[in-house]
C-alpha cells in the first residue's frame, strides 16, 4: 500500500451506499472490551514496539489508518494480524490505550468470515486447534501437530523427527486425546454461543 492510496480513500467524497464507511464501527463492535480504535493518534509506538513487524505487510499504525479509511479489503487481506504474536508490548506502550491485540483478533475473525486472508497457514492452524478443543474439551497437541504439519510444513517433518521423538519418549506428548467429562455440556454452550454471535 502506498501513501497515495490512503490519502485517496480519506479525501474521496463519502458515498451513502458505501458500506466500508462503517468499517471502523464494525471492527470496534466485534472487539471484546472497548477497542478505542478511533482514539489512535498515528504515533507509531505500536510498530516501533513490535517484535515481528519486519514480517508484516503493514505496521499496526498503517493498518489502523486503513481501517479508519474504510479500506476493508486491503485491511482484511493484510498479513499483519496473523503475524501479531500477542506479546502486548504495543498495548502497554500505546498512549491512547487502544486494545491493539484484541483488534488484531477481531480482524482475524473478519478475514476468516470473508475469506480475504492470503495465506491459509494461520487460519488453518486456529481452525484445527479449535476443532480439537470443541471435540475433546482439551487441546490435543499430537493430533494438532500431525494434521497441521502434514498439510502445511511436510518438508520440515524430517528435521523435526528427533524433536517429536524426544517429546514422545520424554512423555511430553500424548498420542491419545484427553477428554473432559461433560463434553456435551461444553458443546451445548458453544453451540448456543455461535447462535448468539450470528444474531449480531
Amino acid at each position: 500500500m502506498t501513501s497515495e492510496t490512503v490519502s485517496q480513500n480519506i479525501t474521496s467524497p463519502p458515498l451513502e451506499s458505501n458500506p466500508n464507511l462503517r468499517f471502523l464501527e464494525e471492527v470496534s463492535g466485534a472487539t471484546a472490551g472497548v477497542a478505542r480504535l478511533e482514539m489512535c493518534i498515528q504515533c507509531g509506538s505500536c510498530g516501533g514496539s513490535c517484535p515481528s513487524s519486519a514480517d508484516m505487510d503493514h505496521t499496526p499504525r498503517q493498518l489502523f489508518a486503513m481501517v479508519r479509511a474504510g479500506m476493508r479489503e486491503e485491511a482484511l487481506s493484510s498479513n499483519t494480524p496473523w503475524i501479531c504474536v500477542s506479546c502486548y508490548h504495543c498495548v502497554v506502550r500505546c498512549p491512547q490505550e487502544v486494545h491493539i491485540a484484541d483488534v488484531m483478533y477481531t480482524l482475524k475473525s473478519m478475514a476468516i468470515r470473508t475469506k480475504l486472508y492470503k495465506d491459509a497457514t494461520a487460519p488453518d492452524f486456529s481452525a484445527t486447534f479449535v476443532d480439537m478443543v470443541e471435540t475433546y474439551g482439551r487441546s490435543f497437541e499430537f493430533g494438532l501437530a500431525t494434521r497441521h504439519y502434514l498439510k502445511h510444513f511436510p518438508l520440515r517433518l524430517p528435521g523435526m523427527a528427533p524433536m517429536g521423538l524426544g517429546l514422545l519418549t520424554k512423555q511430553r506428548m500424548d498420542i491419545t486425546p484427553n477428554r473432559i467429562e461433560r463434553i456435551d455440556e461444553l458443546k451445548r454452550i458453544l453451540q448456543h454461543a455461535k447462535e448468539l454471535e450470528a444474531i449480531q
Partner: peptide, 17 residues
C-alpha cells in the same frame, strides 16, 4: 472438569464462543 482456555487461537475465530 475444567476445559481448554482456547489459547491464542479461539479468540481469532469467534468472539462469543
Amino acid at each position: 472438569d475444567w476445559n481448554c482456555c482456547g489459547a491464542t487461537e479461539y479468540l481469532g475465530i469467534n468472539l462469543i464462543p
